[in-house]
Amino acid sequence: MMKRVYAKEEVCIGCRLCEVYCAVEHSLSRDIIRAYKYEQPKPEPRVTVEEKEHISFALQCRHCDEPLCVEACITGAMMKDESGRVIHREEKCIGCWTCVLVCPYGAPRRDLSRGKVVKCDLCQSTGREIPACVEMCPNRALVFEER
């Protein structure tokens, strides 16, 4: 069992602040204004808010038990680590977008400026205990828990 991020669709307000704070968290400066206004390449969020009419929720990598992206990755950049996270080793990524094609959730995103995939690492790389999207959601529409 591992903790994952779950969305509470009934209180997601579609503000997309999770995307903003995710991008800032994974930026170089980790300062919102610098990250957005001055950093090159531009910081990319690892979470996407899906929205139709009044229904919205934030979607990020589900860290599947049997991840198709890991199976499909031709360079071994995608791997499942011992804690259960699906991690993406950027140095091995060649930007072939195979993971993007196979992921049933549409979680991996293309960072076109760098020609690499970016995906949620549950903020492991930034040393947070609770992922930024969960902590910063203004309406508690994201939870980080074992289910």
Binding site: G14, C15, R16, L17, E19, V20, I32, I33, K37
Partner: peptide, 14 residues
């Protein structure tokens, strides 16, 4: 505009 990051939160919230 020195602070606005064009995230469009204001657009979606109003």
């Amino acid at each position: 505009n020195e602070r606005c990051i064009e995230c469009q939160v204001c657009v979606r919230q109003c």
